[in-house]
Design a protein around this nucleic acid. Structure first.
Length: 388
DNA sequence: CCTCCACTGGAACCAAGGGCAG
DNA sequence: CTGCCCTTGGTTCCAGTGGAGG
């Protein structure tokens, strides 16, 4: 038998895919030539960043907006543009994009920045102060011949601040020729910063409102033209995707996902066209995939918590935190984790949308009770849990 | 306004990974 | 090589706070 990737059927499927010509534009990370409906915001970023072309450190900038409103894309777009302009103007500027879900502490961010700027620094072992020093040294020693400007994009900064405090902003904003562009999903992320740092941050804010259904339609049409073959989309497909995503707080990522999955369904079923029914089923499929994905990557202890919830649900019991803990210790026997820890797990699971909680107070002698309910399909959870 | 249970915040602790000076 | 100090992610421990029916 030959290589499975060169299998004839697979090969020919790939060659003459009736539906797709190129799936990449449907990925939310794809950066198009032009970002529709984000002109304003990009221009604002440019307005602040342009200072760098006069050898002046730009203001710090903060982008706010819900998921899928184009914050990351806009900042990357601005980044490309500025690099190009700086090259032409012979200005030395580096723009480093850091996703704070990957680098979750001040140490890690600074170390990563050092590494990217060509100074090797270990992931562990050094003091925070040593790493910061090494970082500062990069600017002082003038290793590059001309003045170096650094712009750091901190995506999902709220995660970092929540975990490790605002030290990172303190160190970065203190430095002379560093400018920070932070991206946050929450408007209130500044509560995580103390006032001293806040004043040295002194940032300009740019809001990314959710996309409306019409705007989503424009985005989808543009990407669809690049990724689908001509005339395979029924006329109502894009409007439907847009309307559904508009309901999900104008999430463009979700809209793209819907469209892509609808296309894949159509392809798998050998249909010549993508129709609205595909979209509706794509929605279920995305939901389904998301949950199995989440559950299978959950740490062991949290899976056990879910298992406990599942068995209790089956027994038609009203699940309280106390009961849940009982059932949980039952399941995990020896290496059970403490009661306190369970609350963190419950919160995390709720945040992921797998369960819901509702506390009620029952008065004297009864205390408070937390009613926990499963928010996803029982059988789905069961298969996900036991087929790992 | 008391009471009981559910919940939270913070410090402390632990083990694993790693650097560095002596 | 050895001992000591660092970060990190996970946990435990403890001292609270909060809410509403009685």
């Amino acid at each position: 038998m030959g290589n499975i990737f060169e299998d004839e059927k697979l090969f020919s499927d790939r060659r003459k895919n009736i539906i797709f010509k190129d799936k990449r534009p449907l990925d939310h990370r794809y950066l198009p030539e032009k970002l529709v409906h984000r002109d304003m915001q990009i221009r604002q970023i440019a307005k602040y960043w342009v200072d760098v072309l006069d050898d002046v450190t730009p203001s710090n900038v903060t982008l706010y907006g819900k998921t899928g409103t184009g914050k990351t894309a806009a900042s990357k777009f601005a980044r490309e543009q500025l690099i190009e302009a700086a090259n032409n103007a012979n200005i030395f500027v580096k723009i480093e994009y850091i996703r704070c879900t990957d680098y979750t502490t001040e140490y890690q961010v600074i170390a990563e920045l050092c590494n990217r700027l060509g100074r090797d620094v270990p992931n562990r072992g050094w003091t925070k102060a040593e790493v910061v020093n090494a970082f500062r040294q990069l600017f002082r020693t003038n290793a590059y011949g001309k003045k170096l400007h650094l712009i750091v994009i901190l995506d999902e900064i709220d995660i970092l601040l929540d975990k490790d405090g605002d030290g990172i902003l303190y160190t970065l904003t203190r430095a002379d020729n560093i400018s920070v562009l932070s991206i946050s999903n929450y408007l209130d992320f500044k509560n995580l910063i103390n006032s001293r740092v806040k004043s040295s941050l002194n940032d300009k804010e740019i809001i990314f409102p959710p996309y409306g259904a019409d705007q989503l339609s424009d985005i989808l049409s543009e990407r669809a033209a690049l990724s689908f073959n001509d005339d395979v989309l029924e006329a109502d497909v894009i409007p439907l995707c847009s309307a559904m995503a508009a309901k999900e707080e104008g999430d463009a990522r979700y809209a793209l996902d819907l469209l892509k999955n609808a296309g894949e369904l159509a392809h798998d079923e050998n249909c010549k066209k993508v129709v609205s029914d595909h979209v509706r089923r794509a929605k279920d499929r995305i939901e389904h995939n998301k949950i199995t994905e989440i559950i299978s990557t959950l740490p062991l202890q949290q899976q056990r918590v879910l298992e406990a919830i599942l068995t209790l649900t089956k027994q038609k019991e009203e699940i309280t935190s106390g009961k849940l803990y009982e059932s949980y210790t039952e399941i995990s026997k020896k290496d059970a984790v403490t009661y306190r820890r369970i609350f963190d797990f419950i919160n995390e699971l709720e945040l992921l949308g797998i369960i819901s909680t509702n506390t009620v107070s029952r008065g004297r002698g009864k205390g408070r009770t937390n009613i926990i309910k499963l928010q996803c399909d029982e059988t789905l959870l069961e298969t996900a849990l036991y087929t790992i």
